[in-house]
């Protein structure tokens, strides 16, 4: 039987109205329906953080967020951060400091970092390590990710 419902919310500032099974995860809505593939599927269990997006100002795992709980929500993905080809200051810092290597974890880390910096979260190394603890990276040892965030925060 078709159990789809109609859902309305905003993605990257644009209104979205779509029909979907209510327990469809936001990850699939973004990647498959909206073709916003910047959000990555790393584990599907809310552990690796590669699918981190911002919902109503908070960093969440898109793989654990059912579309039924998005009614009226404001969703932001990595695609929202840069204005066309012009990188945001956070993205620019990642480029200059070596904060991205293979790039699989990068969109999720950028979104977690954006949510943290927006709400005025602390930027000493200890605070950033804790803030990053829901995002796994296998390439960098996190050091240049933290440096990137600190450079971006200092530039503000």
């Amino acid at each position: 039987m078709n159990n789809d419902h109609v859902f309305r919310f905003h993605v990257n500032g644009q209104p979205v109205e779509m029909q979907a099974p209510p327990m469809q995860r936001l990850l699939d809505v973004l990647r498959e329906t909206l073709r916003l593939t910047g959000t990555k599927n790393g584990c599907g269990q809310g552990i690796c953080g590669a699918c981190t997006v911002i919902v109503n100002g908070q960093a969440v795992s898109a793989c654990l967020t059912p579309v039924v709980q998005l009614e009226g929500a404001d969703v932001q993905t990595v695609e929202y951060l840069s204005d066309r080809d012009c990188l945001s200051s956070l993205q620019q810092s990642f480029l200059e400091c070596g904060g991205t290597q293979c790039g699989s974890c990068t969109p999720g880390i950028l979104m977690a970092a954006t949510a943290h910096l927006r709400r005025g979260g602390g930027t000493n190394t200890e605070e950033l390590r804790e803030m990053l603890s829901g995002n796994l990276c296998r390439c960098t040892g996190y050091i240049k990710i933290i440096e990137s965030m600190q450079q971006a925060a200092a530039a503000k």
């Binding site: 809310g46 953080g49 960093a59 969440v60 795992s61 654990l64 967020t65 949510a115 603890s133 829901g134």
Partner: peptide
Amino acid sequence: AAVTGGVQRQNR
């Protein structure tokens, strides 16, 4: 609460 998963989980 602080050691239950990462920020993403704690938010949900």
